[in-house]
């Protein structure tokens, strides 16, 4: 009798636990049609993980570099582990997380994140952290990222945070419980529309142009981890015109790159070489590049990775080439659909 009783209790606990897990899956935002940036981090885990290059960083990586171009034109297999306002400690822990699965030859990190020295916003935190698989890296990233009013328990049990979504559930919440549509192309967020950069304001005067100690510490950790794993860390500054990139910030990054012996490409200073035209190559007046702009600077980066770094052309690897055939088809389909949506004529037609 006693055994039966305990079995019943265990069964009840299990049933409640499963119900709560399903409820949590239902109520958590899926980020499929709205704010798709929240779905980016999770997508990586469904990939075959043998990338030559992994990008980490904020919107300046996932909106400005196209892995499809690196493959199509250089045979370089790459992935962008980017997310909106990815803070530098989040980039570090995402790198740790990535290294649990693969060791790329090159890691590309965008330096704009150095401007933040402390946690910023729960909404952005969640878009980066919720998609990570549970690991020590995720725990450390949550602890490093939480704003004062956030609770670690809310990350362990997101149901605590999202339970009030029941009244706004959509069909995607039910569909997305078991299957999520992809929102990126190997981490790249595509936009083809054009909004020229005009009247871009200069930066305000700052009281202190030095990056914070915490930010530097995490850049050191990224550099050390790459060094330890035999990975080349390439620092980049994407050519976004806004937020303003101060000359004082540039000097600090240049000095750091020199001291650590790291390559540093500032695409703001390479507009002639890349052929960027901010009347055509941005969809939001200079904050991010559109497809045309992203493909231009990716071509420059691809040539650099091939010629200066010596990454091999892997287009001859059948299994990889087959995977990329499907990926490129999806990329072109998305591109054409967007051109149609915005009533634009693709430049190659």
């Amino acid at each position: 009798m006693k055994k039966r009783k305990w079995l019943k209790i265990a069964g009840t606990v299990l049933a409640v636990a499963v119900s709560l897990i399903l409820l949590q899956e239902l109520l958590m935002p899926k980020y499929i049609y709205d704010i798709t940036e929240g779905a980016m981090i999770r997508e990586y885990y469904g990939e075959e993980k043998d990338h030559d290059v992994v990008f980490i960083g904020d919107c300046e990586v996932y909106e400005n570099f196209s892995p499809a171009v690196l493959w199509r034109e250089y045979g370089i297999n790459s992935y962008i582990r980017g997310s909106a306002q990815q803070l530098i400690w989040q980039s570090y822990y995402l790198l740790e997380d990535t290294l649990r699965y693969e060791t790329p030859k090159v890691v590309v990190f965008n330096v704009l994140a150095l401007q933040y020295d402390r946690p910023q916003s729960e909404a952005y935190n969640r878009m980066t952290l919720e998609g990570m698989r549970w690991s020590a890296s995720k725990v450390k990233s949550i602890l490093a990222s939480m704003t004062e009013k956030e609770s670690f328990l809310d990350y362990v049990f997101p149901l605590l945070r999202y339970h009030s979504r029941w009244s706004e559930l959509k069909a995607e919440d039910f569909r997305g419980m078991f299957r999520r549509e992809r929102v990126t192309h190997n981490g790249y967020y595509m936009r083809v529309d054009v909004r020229p950069a005009e009247n871009v304001p200069e930066g305000r005067i700052l009281a202190d142009y030095r990056f914070g100690d915490n930010a530097w510490d995490y850049l050191d950790r990224i550099a050390d981890l790459c060094q330890e794993k035999g990975i080349l860390l390439v620092l980049v500054k994407a050519p976004s015109l806004y937020p303003y990139w101060y000359p004082q910030w540039e000097e600090q990054v240049e000095a750091y790159a020199l001291e650590r012996g790291l390559p540093y490409l500032n695409f703001l200073e390479l507009t002639e070489e890349t052929g960027l035209d901010f009347s055509q190559d941005t969809y939001d007046a200079g904050l991010h590049l559109n497809l045309s702009g992203a493909e231009k600077i990716t071509r420059y980066l691809g040539a650099y990775l091939r010629e200066d770094i010596g990454l091999a052309d892997r287009r001859g690897e059948k299994a990889l080439a087959d995977r990329w055939r499907d990926k490129l088809a999806a990329y072109e389909q998305d591109r054409d659909a967007q051109y149609e949506k915005y009533g634009m004529t693709p430049p190659d037609r």
Partner: peptide, 10 residues
């Protein structure tokens, strides 16, 4: 306890 970050606010 949390809010959206804008890319524009330096």
């Amino acid at each position: 306890g949390g809010a959206a970050e804008s890319a524009s606010d330096q």
